[in-house]
Design a protein around this nucleic acid. Sequence first.
DNA 1: TATGAATGAGTATTCATTCAT
DNA 2: GATGAATGAATACTCATTCAT
Lengths: 190, 190, 190, 190
Amino acid sequence: MGGEARPLRADAQRNRERILDAAEVVVARDGLSASMRAIAQHAGVGLGTIYRNFPTQEALYAAVIIDRTQRLIDEADTSLAADDPGAAFFDYFTRIVVDATRKKTLADVLTQAGVDPKAGTADVSRDMRNVIERLLVRAQEAGAVRQDLRMPELLALLAAACLAAERNQWSEELRARTLAFVFDGLRSQR
Amino acid sequence: MGGEARPLRADAQRNRERILDAAEVVVARDGLSASMRAIAQHAGVGLGTIYRNFPTQEALYAAVIIDRTQRLIDEADTSLAADDPGAAFFDYFTRIVVDATRKKTLADVLTQAGVDPKAGTADVSRDMRNVIERLLVRAQEAGAVRQDLRMPELLALLAAACLAAERNQWSEELRARTLAFVFDGLRSQR
Amino acid sequence: MGGEARPLRADAQRNRERILDAAEVVVARDGLSASMRAIAQHAGVGLGTIYRNFPTQEALYAAVIIDRTQRLIDEADTSLAADDPGAAFFDYFTRIVVDATRKKTLADVLTQAGVDPKAGTADVSRDMRNVIERLLVRAQEAGAVRQDLRMPELLALLAAACLAAERNQWSEELRARTLAFVFDGLRSQR
Amino acid sequence: MGGEARPLRADAQRNRERILDAAEVVVARDGLSASMRAIAQHAGVGLGTIYRNFPTQEALYAAVIIDRTQRLIDEADTSLAADDPGAAFFDYFTRIVVDATRKKTLADVLTQAGVDPKAGTADVSRDMRNVIERLLVRAQEAGAVRQDLRMPELLALLAAACLAAERNQWSEELRARTLAFVFDGLRSQR
DNA sequence: TATGAATGAGTATTCATTCAT
DNA sequence: GATGAATGAATACTCATTCAT
């Protein structure tokens, strides 16, 4: 309704992103006790502006997860185009865990990918699941990953690694060493 | 409350346990937002009774963790006495994950075993860590587990499995299939 | 709330004062056990509004004291400009006690003027003390007040009168008669 | 009812006094936030024992005041027997203030002597008032105190001094210097 | 459209008082 | 008679959400 004023649109878009970014940062810092006010302040917007964009705190958090998951899905194209399907698979697994270590709150999506699709995260969950499945199938076809590995277990392992990484702030070294053992368990055994 | 003919002297002791049990149940159900009032109601005691036993919500949660961890530590004796060190090791790993699936909130202890010893959970964390280490060493000496597996990674894997299992309510089958892959990664490769 | 045709922008400012007034009234009525909720109700605002203006109950009380003390300090200018330094001195002493009789909670400032400067009341305490000291010096120079009266005793007498007046709700007559004796003790004896 | 077992009687009496003493100490230390539990612990008795002796916290506090007031009344006999009625009067005034400085909570009685006789303190309030009045009359008859000083003002001054002394913990020197001015105002002016 | 003041339900915790042992 | 465990009403304070400006 009413002429689509470009500048305003741009402003709104900018605000939406600033809020999402702020939410990530503040939640990573304050954990579950992060307050909407703190997020608003960090984003440099008024409280009401958050509520204009996201009807509820839960909706905001869902949007954060969707946003980040979408970015990871987008990055998957690179991996899918790689020559070595095995490397692509393990690289992507690692990339997700790295992301979780840095930003927290992602693990839920993986969790939900396997189970409770709740609210608006259902779409990205499905997309993420599809991406992972394609990487898995290609890696298995290439003989780099065990044939008996199925999606449920793979998602469970991924979620487990993300949860632990984000909660315990795995160091780069601990992550490498720990994932190495996991990957050894997934590789085709001769 | 309760139909016992005569309230025992040991009512206090009973209350303490009822509160611990209620706290486990309510926290499992409501997550970290569980309220002291909800716990009191579930335990069938007054709010004040909780505070008589545990000075603080944090203290109550610590007691829950300590209590359950201690029980797991006690159970380890059986595993340590087993003939097959490899089976003992993997059995105990599984047992911990099963416990987490059912009761939640244990993963924190494993986390702390590797990191932040915070408050009164330090003792059981250390004990748990020691028990696990002994099982690991024996399994390695028996050639059942890879020599290059060290405690940090092992604890990371254990915490990861517990976190995912408790959050996603792993079914018995999913747990078995998922842990099978992890264990394959830990076994001595020929 | 309130029948004003149009809520002003300055509603916030108005609220702040309504809260301060309500706090005075409720504390005068309920004593130190006055609850924040009671103050909010009396002020006709929500509980949160109090906390928006004053981070803490202690901060609110401090503000009440500062507010009233500042008003008394401002009034002192009149006394300082008076022709008769002796009358000015005794008038101001009386004025402070009258204020205490009506509103309570002032005596603390006088107390603090002599001792514990605590928190944000330090500034007005100092100002009040300075004002009183100037009135005293002028009255002594005019020969209306004993030379051997020093600030510590003067503040002690003032605080004593305020405490008793506010606690016992001195009637106008009792106040006049009681202060007359005190003043006789302070006057230059021939 | 039932034979008056002497030992128990003695025990009970002892407990009553221990509780009164503890209440004084704890209230002097913790102020109005003193808890019944703290008093019980300080007295070395169970909580229930306090309630056996004093039906309510208010009753306990009343008893403390009555107890101390009675002791002051008893001490007045000495002053009444003194040769110099003027000295007796001023000494007793001072003595009461000293007691307030040390033990706190007495001023209320003086307050109540002039006003609200509330509960069980009425009797000692009256007695105290009588004692003071007799000292006053004698001092006035001896020409040591102004004829126009009446009981209301005297009690007001006494209460004021006690309140300020107990709240501000007047030092011995400050008390002496401050009361000196008050007394000069009460003495017969030539 | 953006702001942030206002709201009040909800939280942890304290403490006077009761009553079973 | 003495004890202290149990109770729950009451308190200060937080925070998601609404809405007047």
